[in-house]
Design a protein around this nucleic acid. Structure first.
Lengths: 207, 207
DNA sequence: CTCGATATGAGACTGCGTTTCAATACGAGT
DNA sequence: ACTCGTATTGAAACGCAGTCTCATATCGAG
């Protein structure tokens, strides 16, 4: 059971067959090699053929695992989105959506604190490479789709009603704050904790 | 005097030379032809060569006018951004930034009301075409850069301080609300006025 | 009219992403 | 262990976006 891009999806029963384990191994290997090359030579100056050569895969197979070159860098975000959504659903029922979103983002904060140096490098590359920034926004859109239903539920809004943009607006705005905090964090070289910047950004509304 | 993509910029002195007028007419011609082809066959199924052929231009020249295929559709946004920024600066000094941003967006609302049918078609294409959505976000980033200084000024924040993500967060969140409102507007086929949706979206915070 | 700057077309080139096809590796059932 | 249907793989050609070079016009100022 895999999603459209082949990520193994959830703990849904199946004992992972040999094939799927192979698949996972290959994927992490590719990501490792690619990240090394990207940080060494820059994203734009690294060709897909080069990555394929260094991993011993063919170009075609590479594109079967990752639909695009950018996806090699961004596959991880898919999972982060799921984690945030899970965390959001776990927040107390009576917590305000805005606050609940802020708390759900703590999973990302913790991930960054686990490896600040790597996170800094990663985010810098993301922000310096236009094509990556663009794809990154697309991924955030998928986060949005994962988070909106829960916010809608908390606001007692019929999920099918598109005349009420409030759930979407809250989620999109929160994600915008998250991006802004990340940008600031990179700008001051990690000098100010991400959590603090995120509090400031999202606190600009309740003032 | 032209900006990086060749758009004539503001009423800054110069009487437009013949060359620049030619340039302008060619550009609007290309945009017209391209929009027709895109709505007829879809963005992805229209090649740049086709547009070049129908306008009598060479591929190379086309790319001199518009850096990318997406830019042909999105050049107009550059100007919209400037208008919003101008409107924002014109808002009363004591108005809250959030409200001032809401009012500044009215220029877009008015543009949509001037040609709802065309706006609907345009936005639909934008949202249905992934590569266009991605570039659209990039353009919004440039809007952000145009709006942040004024918001920072109103919050008495030193523009150079990136430890304070609040101006950026407010602007990014407002733009997210704008996008969400536009999405809802398209979803209900323009059934609810954009202004109303925008009020709802941006009102979800002050509640 | 002349000269420098600029826009143009033609064509080759790089790189991403897709498609086709034949060969191979898995894995379930016998 | 054998076999057959199903996935996965590499090789190679293809389509298209975007860049570059270079020779040729075209404009604009003096």
């Amino acid at each position: 059971m895999t999603d459209s891009r082949g990520t193994s999806v959830g703990p849904a029963g199946k004992p992972p067959s040999l094939r799927e384990r192979m698949r996972a191994t290959v994927r992490t290997e590719v990501v490792a090699v690619a990240l090394r090359l990207f940080t060494e030579q820059g994203f734009d100056h690294t060709t897909v053929d080069q990555i394929a050569a260094e991993t011993g895969l063919s170009r075609a197979s590479l594109f079967r695992h990752f639909g695009t070159k950018e996806d090699i860098v961004l596959v991880g975000l898919e999972d982060s989105g799921r984690q945030i959504a899970q965390e959001l659903r776990a927040r107390p029922e009576d917590e305000r959506p805005w606050k609940a979103l802020r708390r759900a983002f703590d999973v990302l904060v913790r991930m960054n604190e686990a490896d600040p140096e790597g996170a800094l490098r990663y985010l810098r590359m993301l922000q310096e490479t236009p094509s990556l920034r663009a794809r990154h926004f697309e991924k955030q859109l998928s986060w949005q789709e994962m988070l909106v239903p829960e916010v809608a539920r908390r606001l007692s809004v019929d999920p099918g009603r598109h005349e009420d943009p409030r759930p979407g607006a809250l989620v999109a705005a929160a994600l915008a704050c998250l991006d802004m905090a990340a940008t600031s964090w990179v700008a001051c070289e990690g000098g100010v904790p991400l959590a603090v910047l995120l509090d400031r950004a999202m606190g600009a509304f309740t003032e």
